[in-house]
Amino acid sequence: MTLPLAPCLPTYRARRRFALATVLLALFAIGAGPDRPRAVWAVKDREARQPQVTIGAEGRVYLAFGAGNEIRVASSDDAGRSFSEPVTVGSPGMLALGMRRGPRIAAGQGAVVVSAIGGLGGGPYGGLSAGDLWSWRSLDGGKTWEEPIRLNRVEGSAREGLHAMAAGPEGQIACVWTDLRDDRAHIRGVISADGGQTWGAELLIHQSPEGPICPCCHPSVAFGPDGTLYVMWRDAISGARDMYLCRSTDGGRTFEPARKLGLGTWPLDVCPMDGGAIAAGPEGKVTTVWMRDGRLYSAEPGQPERLLGPGVQGWASWGPGGPFLAWLDRRPGRLLTLRPGDAEPVELFRSANDPSIAAALDGRGPVFAAWEAGPGGSGIFVARLDDPGDPE
């Protein structure tokens, strides 16, 4: 008797190709060199996208990501050597993913908070015809999650799908997003003073003087150790798409006038779909990282920008010794990281997408990076940047 093998061959071959690809990926990308941190394969799921990482109490590492329309969280209690099976937080309908869309995560006052934007149906903004920003809170280390809270007060106004979230030194949490009410993209935000249990009044943080801000570049938010709140976005003023930063020293009640970052400018008529990140340190020190015309720069407020090289999708966080930076040389492409004291960036991964970095709030470490493997994907990887080499 001849068994009908033919119908099974495509599935078998696809699985074999995926298995071979992941083995090869592990061989050339995970191993650590003398100066390269070791990457851990934290989530083995091809649907896992847009990872964000944060450090909670006692150094516990939390990793949030999207898979389909679900928001999931995995965690590590052994300094990032291994990660738990992901827990499903919830689903806001059609989850906004891709190009820095996706969930965000922060920890404060014994709580872990996740935020994400979702809606129903198709539309021009991130695949959403309606999009709202929601937050979930866990009080047991991410095992269970409370019912979500909607953060944008005007229904559907967060439909661009882009937002950012950060925790402060006193457990406060800030969430900012690109808002499209009145069809004019601008930056709004809310702040929680109790670890995400409740949220304050909606804040109008910035509205461009000439019309909408650059609508498809994600905003950034960060707290300094002294509680100063920083927000960054790409504006569209006089035909240029440059990065701007503002700050609040009174807990978000008021914001100082926005300041352009860097001395150069970028005349551009379209959105480049690339935001940036803020690393806020002690004594008011701030470093930003962002892209202009295919090149990545770092800049301090009021100072000339520093060229890092060809790059996109930059991220930053303040850790031991100063700012830790990460970016791609292209998308997808090589993942590079520059740590305090390094003369040159180190290649962390051969082919990656959308990296993010998080450091402990006290700035003393640890510092972790997370990213998607690409192209095609085989899951999410995590590496501890302030502790290079084999974690064992």
Rank of each mutant, 00 (worst) to 15 (best):
Y62A: 10
L335A: 01
V190N: 06
D242R: 00
A116Q: 03
G239M: 13
D132I: 06
R100K: 05
S220N: 08
T337P: 01
A130H: 14
A96F: 00
L95K: 05
E85W: 04
G227L: 07
G127A: 08
P388H: 00
E372R: 01
T22D: 12
E202A: 01
R153M: 02
W327Q: 07
A64V: 00
R292P: 01
T337F: 05
R306M: 02
V190M: 01
E210I: 13
D293S: 14
T287Q: 10
F18D: 15
G189W: 10
G123Q: 14
E283C: 10
D45K: 05
M1H: 13
L120H: 13
G227T: 09
L20C: 10
G98I: 05
I237K: 04
A116R: 00
C271L: 03
G275W: 00
I149C: 02
L308T: 07
R330H: 14
R104K: 15
Y12M: 12
A21P: 02
A299Y: 04
G168T: 09
H186M: 12
A29P: 02
P10N: 05
I117N: 10
A116I: 01
E305V: 01
R253G: 03
G377E: 13
G119N: 11
D78A: 13
P92W: 02
A193S: 15
A74Q: 06
